[in-house]
Design a protein around this nucleic acid. Structure first.
Lengths: 131, 131
DNA sequence: ATCGGAATGAGAATCATTGTCAAGTCGAGC
DNA sequence: GCTCGACTTGACAATGATTCTCATTCCGAT
């Protein structure tokens, strides 16, 4: 809608660093954690910048954002297609899962009650085999 | 499990007030909002107390807690059975919905990947007919 | 190389939530 | 009805994530 597509995200050193960190890590990480990682790696990136980069990436759909059970925003580099997450609440290991039936169901339920412009959030938390 | 059931929640004036406010309201409200409502009604209840009461009620399963899109914890008095919510993002109207298939599916997916001690969150947001 | 606008960063500011601890309240037993 | 100890409360400080501010810096088209 409001996405003019010429949103023009300038590929700066800092943004590249954030993207790289997310790709290397593979799990959901908070802005603060990413900031730590970058700092540890010698990349000096301001905390505000990390927050801004992550939000921009999330808005652009290049990363997934969800809230941990503690309520913090955590980010992860994911595949493009719509999917949900099965997350280990101990080690953070994440499995992308798809549930066509769930998508269908949510839409049906929303229709049934006259709701339009529907979106949904679904996350599964658990303890993985190795934890 | 850890629930000894003799959890003994003393029914104090403040806790009663919080419960009453939730029941009257019927929609998801934040701790701060409940605090406002009580204060406006002349019931003087400390903010900390409201937070504690809501957490206790949520733990006891007497109210549902979820995070608004802004990330704040919001509470609502709900039926006992496990269910999810279809929430109007304009007026806040809430419909409780049940999806046995979803429950089954989440458990199956978790099992399949060796996850145990599984929980899940599922909320549907949309615009209701009158909005 | 230059210019304008976008991006950065250090720190302050905000805001929900939690912790602290002395004072108040409940209710079982006398 | 009165007492005592345990549970609760509340005013305020403390925490911690996130956002804001704004002067400085960087990007990239000209």
């Amino acid at each position: 809608m409001t996405n003019t597509d010429d949103s023009a995200l300038r590929p700066t050193r800092q943004r590249r660093a954030v993207v790289a960190a997310l790709q290397e890590c593979g799990e959901f990480r908070s802005a603060q954690e990413i900031h730590e990682v970058l700092r540890a790696a010698g990349d000096n990136v301001g905390l505000s910048t990390v927050y801004r980069a992550l939000q921009a990436l999330a808005d652009a759909g290049q990363v997934d954002m969800l809230r941990s059970e503690a309520g913090e925003a955590v980010y992860r580099h994911c595949s493009d297609s719509h999917h949900h997450h099965l997350v280990c609440r101990t080690c953070g290991r994440t499995v992308e899962v798809e549930g066509p039936a769930v998508e269908t169901w949510t839409r049906a339920v929303a229709d049934e009650h006259g709701f339009t412009d529907v979106s949904h959030t679904l996350e599964i938390f658990g303890t993985c085999a190795s934890c």
